[in-house]
Structures are given as C-alpha cells and as structure tokens.
Design a protein around this nucleic acid. Sequence first.
DNA 1: GTCTTTGCTGCAAACGTTTTCATATCAGAA
DNA 2: TTCTGATATGAAAACGTTTGCAGCAAAGAC
Lengths: 335, 335
Amino acid sequence: MTSIKDLARLAGVSPSTISRAVNGKKYVKPEIRERILELVRETGYVPNSAARSMVLKRTFTVGIVIPDTFNMFQRQLFSTVERSLEGFGYHTSFFFVVWEPESELRCLRRIKAEKLDGIIMIHEVARPEFYDFLAKSQLPAVLCTFTRAGGFFHSVHVDEEAAARTATEHLVSLGHRRIGLLSGTHFSFGAQRAEGYRSGLAASGIEAREADAVLLPSYTPEEGRSGMRALLERDLGLTAVFAATDELAIGAVRALYEAGLKVPRDVSVIGFDDIDISAYLSPGLTTVRQPIREMGKRTAEIMSRLIEGHREPGDSVFGHELVIRESTKGPPKGN
Amino acid sequence: MTSIKDLARLAGVSPSTISRAVNGKKYVKPEIRERILELVRETGYVPNSAARSMVLKRTFTVGIVIPDTFNMFQRQLFSTVERSLEGFGYHTSFFFVVWEPESELRCLRRIKAEKLDGIIMIHEVARPEFYDFLAKSQLPAVLCTFTRAGGFFHSVHVDEEAAARTATEHLVSLGHRRIGLLSGTHFSFGAQRAEGYRSGLAASGIEAREADAVLLPSYTPEEGRSGMRALLERDLGLTAVFAATDELAIGAVRALYEAGLKVPRDVSVIGFDDIDISAYLSPGLTTVRQPIREMGKRTAEIMSRLIEGHREPGDSVFGHELVIRESTKGPPKGN
DNA sequence: GTCTTTGCTGCAAACGTTTTCATATCAGAA
DNA sequence: TTCTGATATGAAAACGTTTGCAGCAAAGAC
C-alpha cells in the first residue's frame, strides 16, 4: 500500500533519500536515517519488487523447474537447494511441470516473463525449445540430477549407471542369480539404471533375460506394484528384484505382500534414491543413496557463482553409497 | 530480451498497437495483427510481467504458504490447488516456511514485496503479525486445513475432532480397550485430534489414561517411532494405537516391527490423512481420509471468487471418511 | 452535399523504484 | 579570505508495460 512517495511525504524528504536510507547506502544524515527507518517500521513499508527489478534489471530470484509428480528424493533436493540459495541472497520461484508439452511451454513462457536471474532444472523436460532458450538467452542454468549431451550445460549428478551396477552386484554377492528389473521409460535415468543392471549382471557372468525386465511409464508405487505383478505372473523363479526408484520398490514389496510372499525371506528387493521413509518401512528398504544435501548445496553454489559471472566446471559428478537394510538377504534354500 | 519497443520498431508501428495485438484487443487491422503475431513467434517475445503488474496493479499470482516440512497430504493438496488456480487463470507462488519466527517474517516481507493477488495458507504460522497483515491489508486470504477464531478468515477444513473420534471408535468397535495416542504439540490439529481421541474413548465409557498418550514435537516417521517406543517401554498393555498423522503411524509400525511385534496381529495401528503411500504399505494402513481434491478445488474456487470481489461464506467444512485397510483388526485373544 | 458513427493508430502519462548528476552546505587547509 | 573535499539532498531519467485521449480516415445515414 504505502509507496516510497508516501514515505517521502511523511518524512519530509525526497524519494531518493528514502531509497538510500532503506538500502543502507551512504550519504544520509544519521538522524534522518533514523526517522525514516522508524517510519518504515510503523507503516510496514517494503519496496515493491516489480518496480525494483525493472530498474535493477535483476530479480534476485532463481527458478526451479521440477516435476509436478516429484518424489521424496527430489523434494529433499529442492528443499536443500532453496535453503542454500537463500544463504547466497537469492529467492526461489518454483515451477511444477507435468509431463505434457503444453505444461512445459507454459512454464517456459513464465520463465521468460519473470526475468529470473537463473534457472535450475530438477526436471528433465522433453521439449527441445526449453534447452534452446536456455542456451540462446545465456541465462545461468544448472541441470540437477541429469546431464545433456553437448557439454553446454552445467550439471550436478551421480553416475547413474555405476550406482545401478552397485545395487545389482549387491544382490549377486548375496547369491542371487535370477534378478528382476523394474525401471521406467521416462527420463534418461530410467535407461541408465536399466543399463547398470544389465552391466552388473554381465560382469558376474549372468545372462540378462528379456523377460526379467519391466519398463513402466512412471515411477510411482502403483506402477511398481503392477510391474511386480507382471513379473510374478511370468513365473520366472526370481529371487530378487532391483527397482529403479524407492517408490517402485515400495510398490513391488506391496505386490509381493499381496501374493503372500515375504520380503526378504522369499524375494529380496533393492531400491534407488534412499528417500526418507525408506528407513522407516518394515522391513527397512535396502537402496542406493545419492548424496542429496551435498548435491543440493553444490547446485546452489554453482548457480550463485554463475550469476556473479564466474566460469565454472561443467560437470559435478557425485559418488553414491549402498545402504543395506533389511529388504535384501540371500536367496531361499533350494534356489 | 526483446521488448515491446523493439517489436514496435520491427513492425513499424507504435508500442500501443503491439500491446493491443498481443493482448487480443479490438482495433488492430487484421493484417497488421497477423504480422505482429508472426513477429512475436519469431522473436519469442513475452511481455515482462514486472512492468505489466506495475501498470495493471495486479499480478495474477496467488501465494501459497506451506511448511517446508510439508507431508504428502499437504503436497497433494497444494498440487490440486495449483492446478485448479491455473484453471481460473492464476499463477502460483510458493513460500516454504520453516518453524521459526525469522522464516515467517521473511515470508511476510516477500508477500508484501510481490504484491500478490491473494494468499492461501496451508501452514498455520505462529506469528500474529502474519494474520494482522492479512486482515488489515484486505488481501484475499483462505486458510486451508485450519481455522482461526474471530470469523474473519475464509477457511476450508474438516472437523478434525470428529474425524479423530471416528478413528478411535473404529478401534473400539473392533474390541480394543487399551488404546494409545501419538499426536503433536504443534498446530491446532494436534490438540484437536487428541481431543477427538479422548471424546471417542469417553463416548465408549473407556477411561483415557494420561500415560497412554504421547505428544511429539513434530509429525515425522522418526517421531512416531520414538513415541511408540516410549509407549512400549511403559508396558501399558496397549492393543491399538491412534496416530494423528500417517507419517507418525508409519514410524509407530516401524517401532513395533523393531520390537518384534506384528501389526495388526499384536497391535493395531490407525493413522490420519490417507497420504498416498498408505495404500501401498505392507500391511496397508487403516486411516481417516480428508477429501483432498475436493478441498483443494474449493480453496482455489473461493480464492478466485474473492479476487473477483465476491463475498463468500466464511467456512467450508468437509466430511471425512474411514479407510479400512489391513493395519487394524480385533485385539489378540486373552486381552 | 453534410453529419455521425466506427475502425484504427499514436502520443503521453502512469505505475514504484534506483541512480546519475547537479547543487548546496560545511569543515578544514592554505 | 578562498579553495578543496567530503557529506547531504533533490530533480529527473530510466526500466517495459497499458490505456485514455485525440486525431484521422472510411463508411454509412440523411
């Protein structure tokens, strides 16, 4: 409500002086500064950020693009990113996008309209326009949890394939030979984790059978459940399953439970991401952890430095960690 | 990059005409409009929203205040609210606030600075300044999932106490007599659900023992786990537990699992909210469902009507629904 | 023929800031 | 005394839009 002009009138000075006082600049007589600050407190005046960004040509806001269906891993990630960005003096504007071209374009329009200082993608959008715009506009951009060929973008991620291989090798090391896969068709990590599964098997001299793998259209518990059901119906003699996300794993455990099978006694299940409930499930879910906090902090740090005009190395690859809980053990006797 | 003036120069017309063409107003010669729209497509021009909001005095954006620690229930809620709001032509700006005075004040500052059209609170902030500001500024506001005395605010919520009573009575109807409570000290729903538990017991002539209840500082699985442990250590002979949120319930189930007790064979557990994994847990969690989608849609609808200047009824109270899954059954024989 | 209506266009003001520039005051130095 | 430099202040321009107003041409009414 109150504008800088109102305040100027109240204080009997010009808007310029108000601006200087509010922004803590030099050249304001101490007693006048005090009076102005008092007035600011009384009226609850806060500078209009639209007007401010028009003249400053920056918004101190970075956009975060994230899937509307974000899982708990991504949720923890963006929470950390936001907190860190705040530490660097930036606000955050969230764009939740659904898996539809229209939604992505709408998001792109908003990004253009809002004149953000930078943009962090935690969602691997499908439309090439998106990346083209980022590249052409020179807008500082960081891809978080994925990369894109061409080496143009900065990105922060783990070696998905290696991490999936670790998961698979864990199952193999427990003695499993018939291992199923639940992964997805969307996003590059789906294919990468599937590839890690295959190379993990191959390294142990186990043949990867076509029928052992199911590729789902999304990574929800519901899909995990129906994928696991499909696997069970095929009667493959599986003693373990690698699910490409913890959510898929939860659904898989559910399907096994419904089929009267016990985890890990009858079938072992391993997930991926280590989302926060995984530790609280019964049995606790064995999974591969991505270093969420470190990745989030790094993302914010790179963004802040990019905005300040520094050059940064293009890729930050983080290590993963196997978290062994109770959902995996050796195969049942007789297998 | 491209501004309306650049476009005007390119098209050989004045900025006014560009504005009219872009906004689909009358009084632009068809062939000129066509040429302008073509230019817009080529250049990727999108009007600067800061400049736009300055002259229009509205942002077409509503703010959603939500706890940084939002649970899956709140997450589904804000997703629905956002989607519905979009249908009414509004964008959404998210404010994740943590349980600290400083964070709430920072959020308030941003809200003032951004000149939003309205504000939806999915988080019951502690600072009275917040509500004072909303009341004084006449900013359209809807409280979602809670109310505030005074009748000033519009709010959308369920009868928390009645819903908690339903949960408790379900346990009683299964034959339980020794029923524990896990609830929290934060937010009014913590006390309301606890009250519903007590009145549910009282209605069945069961004495509510002080020792049967644990009040936690937050509603996470971790707290649920430690709360359930505390209950177990007291050795009260409980055969069932009512947890005030599904997250608490998940933690409680975990604690029981760690203690070697089976749910529901040894102890029944009922939650509250029906968050989306609850159906996929093993055993599936019995809980009380709030009609998330309907509440979210209603919230958006009220907001949109408030912004348009209509009067609306102050309170929308929704009914709840008992969802019986596998985590509750009769008490073990001999109890 | 004139008068009115309608369609189209541009000028200029306004929104709320920040900052450059010019000007004024004052203290201290010569 | 005059000059220098630091401190303090305001006027005005700029950022990118939208829109009321004025002006003009073309079309239609009489």
